[in-house]
Computed example of a mutant assay.
Amino acid sequence: MPPHVNSYPNQSPRHRPSPRWVIAETLTGPEGPSAVLDGNYIRHFANLSRVTIATNASVARRLRPLVQRCANSGHSEIEDVPLPSGGSQQLLAIPTFGPSNQVFAVTLCAGVPPGDQPVRPGIETVELNPSTGTARVSPPLRHAIAISTETDSDTTVSTFMSRFDRWDDREGFLSLFDLTAPSERWAGTTTAALQTGNRHHLFIAAKLSPARRSIHALMCDLGTHDAVPPPDFISAALRRLRLPEGHSIGIVDLRSQLIHEWAPTGPTPSGYSPSHLRVHPEDEGIFANACGHLLHGRQQWHNEFRMSIDSRKWHPVRAQWILVTRGARPQAAIQIAVRAE
């Protein structure tokens, strides 16, 4: 049975009202919208005509057009559906916007009294750029996962991923960033210790946009009602390392060339922060060359390149690479040391 969504964290199960909502993703893709959450259950890009609020053929036929109308207008939409009994059922569609004001999701509510809305999980959104390694995160989510909200500037994919301590499955999520054959969509879960101090379980649905310009994703909090899975042991180990000042270690997905895990490091006089590392555009070939050597049989590699720290200055670094695993998604550990200038 699919995992439950905790929509009513403060009520005992027998006092919870029956959920009458569905979350449809409108992320991108030629196949159109699909269901990702259906009341208290996770769905993985399911057919909208088969969700629980589609109680008859008349309602089922109207769900997809209603979602598309809401996504196109960017406003809540209401539709009264005639029922075989002679009455009618009201359908309500509520949009959720992505960081660039495109509708990423539509919440469908059925049989809701006028002026009321059922309790539903919050929806947050993210845009990830595989080419630049940057991420645009909705403001509430930035706050919840402790990404600076002082500016509206993009963060990095590495920063975004480092705020979560488990991905199910991580390899599937990383396949969206593959340089040669990226996956078109992925759905799974992740866990994080949010600003509330509690660890939370979150559902993610993501799709690759046309022309591979960005990855659009929505996130829904599954709450803390069930036992939240423990942190991934690699994440837990890396985050407990304490390295010399000016040093850091991370994990690189070789097929996407994405650094998706970072160990903490002490600050340097220049304000070195590995969470915001970017390789100099002229040195991207050096970084890619190391990934290629490890993909094709080498166990270790050493090189030097430049990285940005604050988007204004480039710093030379020495990198030591060690192959960690092969398999479908080969991974490497990279240790970086800032060179004295």
Results as ranks from 00 to 15, higher is better:
Cys220Phe: 00
Ala236Ser: 09
Glu79Val: 15
Asp232Phe: 04
Leu243Glu: 00
Phe164Ala: 07
Arg61Asp: 13
Arg170Glu: 13
Asn198Ser: 06
Ile251Gly: 05
Glu79Asp: 13
Gly266Phe: 02
Tyr272Leu: 00
His4Gly: 12
Phe305Asn: 05
Leu91Asp: 03
Ala105Pro: 00
Val324Asp: 08
Val81Tyr: 07
Leu83Asp: 12
Trp186Leu: 08
Ser235Cys: 09
Ile234Arg: 05
Arg43Ser: 14
Arg61Phe: 02
Gly188Asn: 06
Leu295Thr: 10
Glu127Ala: 04
Ile78Gln: 14
Ser58Phe: 03
Trp314Tyr: 14
Val51Thr: 15
Thr151Phe: 03
Pro264Gly: 04
Asp221Pro: 01
Pro84Lys: 09
Ser131His: 11
Ser153Tyr: 09
Leu179Glu: 08
Ile286Ser: 13
Arg170Cys: 14
Pro30His: 11
His302Leu: 11
Ser88His: 11
Gly327Thr: 08
Pro82Trp: 09
Val103Glu: 05
Val228Glu: 07
Arg14Ser: 13
Leu48Gly: 12
Asp226Val: 05
Asn289Asp: 14
Ser270Pro: 00
Phe287Met: 04
Ile234Trp: 05
Ala263His: 01
Leu323Val: 08
Arg278Thr: 15
Leu258Gly: 03
Leu128Pro: 02
Ala146Cys: 09
Glu341Asn: 12
Gly122Trp: 00
Ala263Asp: 07
Arg199Ala: 10
Ser162Leu: 09
Ala205Ser: 13
Leu48Lys: 08
Pro9Asp: 12
Asp169Phe: 07
Glu150Leu: 12
Phe305Ala: 04
Ala319Pro: 00
Gly29Ile: 08
Cys291Arg: 13
Gln117Trp: 05
Arg166Asn: 15
Val81Ile: 15
Thr180Asp: 04
Gln320Arg: 02
Asn303Arg: 04
Leu295Gln: 11
Asp165Lys: 03
Asp169Ala: 09
Ile334Glu: 08
Val157Pro: 02
Gly32His: 07
Trp301Met: 10
Ala181Glu: 10
Ala192Glu: 05
Asn10Lys: 15
Pro17Lys: 14
Ala60Asp: 09
Pro113Gly: 13
Pro82Asp: 06
Asp154His: 10
Trp321Arg: 00
Ser148Cys: 09
Met1Ile: 03
Ile53Arg: 05
Ala332Asp: 04
Ala205Arg: 07
Ser270Gln: 01
Thr149Ser: 12
Ser183Tyr: 00
Pro330Asn: 07
Asn198Met: 12
His143Ser: 13
Pro267Glu: 11
Gln90Leu: 10
Ala105Cys: 02
Asn56Tyr: 07
Asn303Tyr: 01
Val126Cys: 07
Ile336Glu: 01
Glu245His: 02
Phe160Trp: 02
Glu284Met: 12
Arg69Ile: 03
Val5Gly: 10
Ala110Val: 06
Ala193Tyr: 11
Asp80His: 15
Asp116Tyr: 05
Phe203Gln: 06
Ala193Gly: 10
Val112Pro: 00
Ala181Asn: 10
Glu79Gln: 15
Leu37Lys: 11
Val51Glu: 01
Pro33Ala: 10
Thr189His: 15
Arg62Gly: 01
Ala206Val: 08
Asn289Ile: 00
Ser85Cys: 10
Thr107Lys: 06
Cys109Glu: 15
Asp178Tyr: 02
Leu48Met: 11
Pro33Met: 13
Gly32Thr: 14
Asn198Lys: 12
Thr96Trp: 06
Lys313Ser: 11
Leu323Phe: 01
Pro267Thr: 03
Ile42Gly: 08
His280Lys: 10
